[in-house]
Design a protein around this nucleic acid. Sequence first.
DNA 1: CACCATGTTCCTTG
DNA 2: CCAAGGAACATGGT
Length: 283
Amino acid sequence: MPELPEVEVLVHHLRPLVQNRRIKRVSVVRRKVLRSTSETELKHALEGATILDIQRRGKYLVFSCRARPELQPFLVLGHLGMTGRMFLLPEGRVLPRHVAVTLDLGGEMFIFQDPRIFGRFTLEAACLRSLGPEPLSDEWTAHELWRELKRSRQPVKTRLLDQRTVAGIGNIYASEALFRAGISPGMAANRVSLALAIRLWTAIRAVLTEAINMGSTIPLNFSGAGERNGLFYYGTASGPQTSHERLLVYDRAGQPCVACGAKIKRVIHAARSTFYCPRCQHR
DNA sequence: CACCATGTTCCTTG
DNA sequence: CCAAGGAACATGGT
């Protein structure tokens, strides 16, 4: 669930629920998600503090909190990893499996659940500094993408997964953006022309924006229960399509390309699956 | 049982 | 020293 659009949608839905709420108590069930922060440090910082806002940066959720009005705000960084979820649970309910951290907000519990424990919930915010530009910001240009791609001979798909190239693209939207741009995922990044970089830049922004727009209009199920599939918009109340149906190449190996009918291929780059149409994506 | 999985980081190899 | 690739992390779904 967690690439840029899913995190953006989560932040959008979570913000009004947690904004200006005071944290009464913190419970840490899986210490690993705290990374370099100790359990004591997190509790000391958060218990009694108020959540002022949530923002997204790349795939990170950035909580700004403040212990008291006269003090400086501080940040808590959340990351969903592969399987993380965040939602509110009415107080008194039985906790679901694989809870990593809970915040007692009084009346409701904020739950960070993460079966695989690849995610994080930490005071350590230094990792934000190594992130590349925000793909949907006005400051990010196609030329900047091109300049970044020029620096490596790795497959362009692999470069898109590197969060220093641009922040927030994951394995699903990397394949989707390359398909839309008509670029073969295995093409060496430094052989991508400026014209192709412009197409890729446009495709990245379109793919991410469309996913956000769809997710934002759908009511999320914050109970966290009954959602068996990791894919983010699955199990939500309604909607004509699941997110999966909107993906044109991802996880469609062997199926006909929606544009030309050729068989979608699956290949491996840097140990991750890549899906593409060998006819549409020739360059 | 085998294989796959939306992410990041560390280790090894060249 | 750097770049690139793969394993590891821990669990669940098919």
